[in-house]
Amino acid sequence: MDKIIGANETEQIRRNYETLSGTELMKRNLYRPWPARITSITELTATEKLFELRLIDPEVREAFTHTAGQFVELSIFGVGEAPISISSAPSKQGFIELCVRSAGSVTGVLHDKQCGDIVGLRGPFGRGFPFEEMKGHDILLVAGGLGIAPLKSLINHIHDERHAFGNVTILYGSKNPSEVMFRSQFEMWQHRKDFNLILTVDNTEDQPWDGEVGVVTKLFNRIDIDPNNTYAAIVGPPVMYKFVIAEMRKKGLHFDRIYVSFERAMKCGIGKCGHCMVGHQYVCVDGPVFNYWEAANIQGAM
């Protein structure tokens, strides 16, 4: 019952601005969240769930387009907002997937939501991965822990346009087998010829595991990379970047072809509130994706 009224209210707002396109509606006020219905919830681990959302306003839904690496601000009305990176590929139209760890007040409440419930979304914000520029090259993707969430968007997008890329290597490290996300999908992918996917855990903790054991940097001696034809992306906990970048540099990868994504407290998402400031940059508009050359030139970033 409640949900139907929610949709009607949106209709009313639409009527007030019926001459505006979806893009114009969103741009009118970038602080305004748009109601979105939860259409699917998948439990990934004990602390992470994958939410599939559908914006209720049809024109806003159609106007919402993103690039891999961008994020949205997710609203739970009465609790607040949280910046969440988009996990689905831009090629998946009409639905937005968010892989969310229950970590704070907003994400905690989101985890108690059910299919059909309504939340608020605004965005997408920030600069994503240079997908078009990456085409025609080999790809090396390295994820650590929850870093797989923003990288999943890029992985899915590459998957959808697989013919446009050379060799694709994905290294994904988790603490233990129970924290591996998208495990069933990735275990199937391990048999694919067009993706070189290697999963590793720091420790099996006596759980069943047929992947690698050890930190993700240990996998670098197993992979073969053409340094002049490769784009790389790393997303993971801050401590991981330094070591993974060192391995990539040893392989001869170019400074400006190694991409990283930063997690900061993006409150407004549009370069105003100051919370995500790092060095001279705002992560929300200048990032969250930076190449390593840019990142190394940001004081206090690496």
Partner: peptide
């Protein structure tokens, strides 16, 4: 104030 919302209806009022 940026906007008003309804938690009961999960809606935003401009």
């Amino acid at each position: 104030v940026l906007f008003k919302f309804s938690t009961a209806q999960n809606s935003v009022q401009d």
